[in-house]
């Protein structure tokens, strides 16, 4: 594998600090206002892996879009490394539940999109190759997205994010549509990539176990409009196991918080 600095530098260079300050957001639906986020406050330190957990439709994905800068919050502010987020930036990359690869071009070109858009592709061909090999897709560089399986497509979309050396990776249920075996593999892979590259990660999921396997802190959100309901620290070293008693105990407490305990 070519040695290209896709990672391994000092933490403040490779990861972002995020401050979410009293953020509220509402949608306009045919004239009336629909509040989706209600005064959320929390911070993420550089290099942290935070999971946002909450019932579906609670506004988790909207919060990620706000952090990515795709939309501006109705109230409050979001700071990335102390600067307000007002537009998308390749240092903060959002990975969607659907791979959303461009179907009209090859996997290689898809991964190269960010570099090409910023006009730096010419000098960084090796980076694209490295990103593809990082997710194990070197042999599929020339394939078209419709030739990939769901898991491979999601890997390609991860490579498309990582090639830009993001300081913050926002994951919007990236494994939500995959079959359970592919899911397990990619969960381990996400941890590996996070540990290797050192970026800050915020994962939106409604799978408690996934949150516990991946993240060092879990923020539980309420039903819409989303509010922070509880926070859990989980410092267990990786790789974690789903039948680990500590993990099982914490899962029970979290499900309790969500009102889903059995």
């Amino acid at each position: 594998m070519p040695s290209v600095p896709l990672a391994s530098r000092s933490p403040e260079l490779v990861s972002s600090a995020i401050d979410i300050r009293a953020v509220s957001h509402q949608f306009s639906l045919s004239g009336s206002k629909l509040p989706v986020i209600d005064a959320i406050d929390f911070s993420v330190v550089p290099g942290e892996f935070v999971a946002l957990l909450g019932p579906s439709g609670c506004g988790k994905s909207t919060l990620l879009r706000l952090i990515a800068g795709l939309e501006l919050p109705s109230n409050g502010s979001i700071l990335a490394d102390g600067l307000p987020v007002i537009r998308p930036d390749p240092s903060r990359i959002l990975v969607f539940q659907d791979p959303t690869l461009f179907p009209w071009t090859t996997v290689w070109k898809n991964v190269a999109t960010g570099l090409e858009a910023r006009g730096v592709l010419k000098q960084s061909h090796a980076r694209v190759d490295a990103a593809l090999s990082l997710v194990g897709l070197s042999e599929f560089a020339a394939a078209y997205p419709h030739q990939l399986s769901g898991g491979m497509a999601q890997r390609a979309s991860l490579a498309r994010a990582l090639v830009n050396d993001p300081k913050l990776l926002l994951l919007d249920e990236p494994l939500g549509k995959l079959d359970s075996l592919t899911r397990l593999t990619l969960q381990a892979e996400l941890v590996r990539l996070w540990q290797r590259n050192g970026f800050t990660a915020i994962l939106v999921t409604h799978d408690v176990e996934e949150a516990l396997l991946l993240s060092s802190r879990i923020v539980v959100l309420s039903e819409r409009p989303a509010r922070v309901k509880a926070e859990f620290q989980f410092g267990k070293p990786y790789p974690r196991h789903r039948d680990d008693p500590e993990l099982v105990a914490l899962r029970r407490r979290i499900l309790d918080t969500l009102g889903l305990a059995t």
């Binding site: 990515a68 998308p88 999109t113 858009a117």
Partner: peptide
């Protein structure tokens, strides 16, 4: 598909 534009904007496209 609007999300293609979202992807482009996130990746720094003008």
């Amino acid at each position: 598909n609007r999300s293609f534009y979202d992807v482009g904007r996130i990746l720094g496209a003008d």
